[in-house]
Each structure stands twice: as C-alpha cells, then as structure tokens.
Design a protein around this nucleic acid. Structure first.
Lengths: 137, 137
DNA sequence: AAGATATTTGCAATATTGTTGCAAGTTTTA
DNA sequence: TAAAACTTGCAACAATATTGCAAATATCTT
C-alpha cells in the first residue's frame, strides 16, 4: 500500500485525489511549504478552498504542523513523530535561510527548555532561527 | 522633551501626530500589538495605510520588532535594547497566553543558543512559548 | 519667521489571503 | 450496489495588505 494512502487511512480520512496529491507533496519535500507553494506545485488542479481545508484537516489530525514565521505567512511541514489528533509534539527547531528562503526542519535540534518567570505555565514552544543554510553558504 | 519625540528625532524621523500617537501606544503597552489593535486604540484616527507605513518605518529604524506567531498575524513590540536601523538584536522569548491570547515579551528570558548542524550559520533566532500566563492561571 | 524643499498622509483602486454556505460529486459503509 | 457520510468546487464575501498620486504637513534654509 502506498505511504500516503496508509497515512490517510490511519487517520480515518477519506482517500481523495486532493489529499493524496498534497500529502505526496509533503512527503517529497525537504522543508516546509506555504499554501501558495502547494497551489503552484499542483498546477492549481484543486480549488483554493480545497487546499485550505485539506491543510486544516491535516493539522487537526496531526499529520502536518504549522511553523511560526516572522512575516505574514503560515508554513506547514510533516510531523515526523507521530502526533495525535489535536496534540502536536514537534519539538524541533526550524531554520529559515535568508538566501534561498527555504524553511528547513532541523529534526535533530530540539527546542531547549527555558526557565519562565513565576506563574507562567508553558504547553508548547517553538523556535525559529534565520541565517544561511548549509547549501547556500 | 517627551520620550516619544526623543525617540523619533534620534532616528531621523519627522515628528507627526500619527507617529507620536502610535509610539505612545507602544510605550504604554505591556506586551505586543497587532495592526488591528492599533487601529482600534487610536479610534481609526489614522488611515489604515498610514498605520501600515508607520509600523514598517519603525521596524526599519529598529524602534519596534516583529514577533513570529503561529497563526497568520504580525505582532509588533518595542525594542527594549537599542536596535540599529536594519539590525535587530532583540533576543528575548515571547509568550502567548492561550486564555487571554495576549503576547508578552519576556524581556528577562533570553533565547538560548542552540547547536546547529554543520554548515548552518545563524543570524537571528526567535522563540515563542504558548501556555498560560501569570495573570490567567 | 516665511518660503522652498522634502516628507508624510489620505484616498482610491487593486491585490492577496482566508472563510462560509450550499449543491453536486465522490468515497465509504453495510 | 444503494444509502449514508463526507468532500469538493463554485460563488460570494470578508479581512488584510500594497501602490500611485495629489494634498497636507514638517523640516530646512536664510
């Protein structure tokens, strides 16, 4: 059975062309994707709305996660570790290259714990590092 | 001389009503502001475009900085440490409260250094922690 | 202090991005 | 294979962001 099919079924999702195609894109992509990337790389085969809804569904199911960025854009990337529906525990650092502008999941670099002031209870933390990636230097 | 006036002049900016008012807002606000907050709190006294341009100018001059968020929104906060034009070195952790949804600059919590894989050169890093803040618990 | 120059503002138009309801189409279930 | 459940695309809409340009305002110069 295909990998994408497998993932969709495991999460109780109907298997449709759009979901298979978009999931494939993520499986084939090193790094993160924005909504616009997906539209472009699928040749607008699917309606914008479908892409939005598919991404939201994948996030809800814990298949992909959102990455915080400093500009106004949402980036998505595959969850490498089994995230349950509604509960993500991706804990790796994301790197944004200033030259090629790619966002790369540094799966081996975990977000360090920080000591918060009294009264703050953390549930999730994210870290984004910008700079020059290994391919652009 | 007023503090806001001082800041504007130091950065070689013309002193206008809009800039004074918006800068005052930041000086009076604990935490971060979104474009929408500013419109609301100035009673739409200024055109949306003016607010956009003012924020951009302040970022360029190193007066305020942008905060990465996981949803599609840009947040701005005062730079507490003297940032030069075009080069920000705010290095504190940002905390987003899941209950009151405020974003708080934890000025005393610095972003820890992480060891990146070979070939990656960092220039800036940001850390966002979500959870429950000291006032909401 | 007043006019010349430079900068900023507001408006209008336009672009981009994201959301919702609903009917038609597709997938799953039994 | 038919019924039920779910997904898609369309259309309309809403929110957010950008640009050019003329009018208004601030700064500079003397």
């Amino acid at each position: 059975m295909d990998l994408n099919l497998n993932i969709l079924k495991k999460n109780g999702l109907s298997v449709t062309e759009g979901r298979k195609k978009i999931l494939d894109l993520f499986l084939d992509t090193e790094g993160a994707l924005a909504h616009a990337d997906i539209e472009k790389q699928t040749d607008a085969a699917f309606d914008r709305v479908t892409v939005y809804r598919t991404l939201q569904t994948f996030v809800d199911k814990g298949i992909i996660h959102q990455i915080p960025t400093i500009d106004n854009s949402i980036l998505y990337a595959l969850c490498k570790h089994n995230c349950e529906a509604g509960l993500h525990h991706d804990n790796h650092v994301h790197f944004i290259c200033n030259i090629c502008t790619k966002t790369i999941c540094l799966d081996d670099v975990t977000v360090p714990d920080v000591k918060l002031p009294k009264g703050f209870k953390p549930t999730q933390s994210a870290m984004v590092v910008t700079g020059i990636c290994d391919e652009c230097r």
